[in-house]
Write a protein that binds this DNA or RNA. Structure first.
Lengths: 210, 210
DNA sequence: TAGATTGTTAATCGATTAACAATC
DNA sequence: TAGATTGTTAATCGATTAACAATC
């Protein structure tokens, strides 16, 4: 069906379109042209039209785009109308921050299980979810149709836990550990490497000061 | 001096090179060729050589690259040999996760002040640092030569706080709030938009399942 | 209908890869 | 010296921008 592959450059711009369209929708804007959106988002109108047309014709000549319609189409493209069940491995500050961030839930990302190695934390509740020991992981994943694993653990443990997740059927990993995971081709990994982000900032500070 | 501008595509690969070279160094590897590094990192040898040569000739024909030398050069390029003083605004879970992540400190990023609006949190200590009220922000930034502001606050407050930081001289912002900040040209912003990262993962899951 | 704005093709720009001469 | 591997130029590939015919 889908013949041409969409580049990740395009994909990485979709969430931002989605955010702006959501804001426009919430403020009651009904229609918008690529030029108006271009002015607001500081990307070229040409790129906006090219990006949208990767997925089909959402606009109308002489009119522009209907904000609500386009918003929903992008939600569809991003898979935000589907529910996802997540396990979060590592209930430290970062894990808790993610578990408590309600907006993910609103978009269909349901934190279903939380796991940790620390006996002090196991058994406690985070957002109504009891933290379980790592030994329960495989059974839990199978029983709860988990499709995303979130790794908020130190890099030393990340590869082993990733292997365990993959072995019991998880096919997508949101990885906050500062290590590159080595998974089969059909398993998706999305990395959030905070220290790399900070180093980029550092580079630009350093360059500017010269 | 520096005539040609380095593209952000190159810059965003540097931290990863730095990480792998650090690991090689720690495991006692003395020299490495672009081909060997290519095999390990899964990028082309050609790209590795091109990337490094943006900053000068770090290798030697017939030999390759000295791991420790290259590691230090990249640290220099990234500005990791300079100290940075950070204020962290928002002492929730995410703020605490960042404050407690020791590795930033090791690279010269010193969390010097922590601020919050919540009276329950103000006065408490996070990693030996007393959380201060927002009213102290400007004076603190001036007194402590702060050069980076970290925004771990809700999007509703982010723009206003960013303006305050910029007004008192902060020229770099590490922004975790899900909003695009509008700052003067000479102020650097590095965004970490977690929900956009998760949506990208969602897109790829959704696409794969078709 | 006339005006506006998309969808799409063509042109440009930039980034990646390939090739090889320079040289350690 | 011969072999290896860089530094760098040239070729290719892909992404962005410009232009405009299609059409609402």
């Amino acid at each position: 069906m889908d013949s041409k592959e969409i580049s990740q450059a395009v994909v990485s711009r979709l969430p931002r379109y989605f955010r702006y369209l959501g804001e426009l929708k919430d403020s009651g804007v009904e229609r918008i042209s690529s030029q108006e959106l271009s002015d607001i988002m500081h990307v070229t109108a040409s790129q906006i039209r090219q990006d949208f047309n990767n997925f089909g014709g959402f606009g109308q000549q002489g009119y522009g785009y209907n904000v609500e319609y386009l918003y929903n189409e992008i939600a569809n493209i991003l898979g935000l109308h589907e529910k996802h069940h997540l396990v979060l491995i590592g209930a430290g500050n970062l894990g808790q921050a993610i578990a408590n961030y309600m907006n993910f839930e609103r978009r269909g990302f349901l934190i279903t299980g939380i796991f940790d190695v620390n006996k002090e934390i196991i058994g406690k509740k985070i957002k109504d979810i009891t933290v379980l020991p790592m030994s329960d992981l495989e059974q839990f994943v199978k029983d709860n149709a988990i499709d995303i694993g979130v790794l908020t653990i130190p890099k030393s443990a990340a590869k082993e836990v990733a292997d365990r997740l993959v072995a019991c059927g998880v096919h997508a990993i949101w990885n906050f550990a500062h290590v590159d995971l080595d998974v089969p081709d059909d398993v998706l990994v999305e990395n959030v490497h905070l220290s790399e982000s900070l180093m980029k900032l550092s580079y630009n500070i350093h360059r500017k000061s010269k």
